[in-house]
Amino acid sequence: MSLPASLTTILLLLASNVFMTFAWYGHLKFKAAPLALVILASWGIAFFEYLLQVPANRIGHSVYSAAQLKTIQEVITLTVFAGFSVLYLKESLGWNHLAGFALIACGAGLVFYRPG
């Protein structure tokens, strides 16, 4: 039994975003590490992000437009980042962060709106 392309896409994008978030922000807990080392480590992590993200977009384009794929990606990115920030970096999110993310999500909803 295979999952629908729409769900497969979202699950792959979710997994790829976990890798992406660690590649981009995980090194912030290791500020004493040399910059060249964290760049190489980030590239290594990003490789796995691409192994998931590219198939996600390829599969997803059968059911979503490119603009919709990008919008899904951004909403997932904010969701994963919010969790990462609180759970891994131990940084709190204020009401202004949450309100800003909510406004971005509202804007994302417009991309999927079909008038008529």
Rank of each mutant, 00 (worst) to 15 (best):
L93P: 08
L110P: 11
S6I: 03
N57D: 11
P4Q: 01
G116E: 05
K70Y: 15
L37A: 08
G116R: 14
A66K: 06
A41S: 05
M1K: 10
L13P: 04
A41H: 00
Y64V: 00
T8D: 01
F112P: 05
A102K: 10
A66P: 09
G109T: 03
A102Y: 11
G44D: 04
E74Q: 15
A46T: 07
K90G: 03
M20N: 14
Y64E: 00
V80I: 15
S16H: 03
A67K: 09
M1H: 06
A105K: 02
V18Q: 06
L28Q: 10
L87Q: 03
N96L: 15
V75H: 11
I39E: 05
Q53R: 13
V111N: 11
L11E: 02
L78Y: 15
A66M: 14
R114T: 11
F84R: 01
S85T: 11
T77A: 15
A102R: 06
A33E: 00
A82H: 06
G109I: 06
H61I: 07
V75N: 12
V80P: 08
V80C: 08
P34Q: 06
R58Q: 11
M1E: 06
L7V: 06
I45G: 02
A108I: 07
I104W: 13
G116C: 05
V80E: 10
F47I: 09
I45Q: 01
S6T: 05
H97R: 13
T8N: 00
G100Y: 12
L103K: 05
T77N: 15
H61S: 13
T79W: 11
A108T: 11
L103A: 15
I72W: 04
Y50C: 06
A32P: 00
L35T: 09
L7C: 00
W24L: 13
W43F: 14
A23Y: 01
T8F: 00
A102M: 14
E49W: 12
R114H: 12
A66F: 13
G44E: 01
E91G: 08
E74A: 14
I10R: 06
Q68F: 02
Q68W: 07
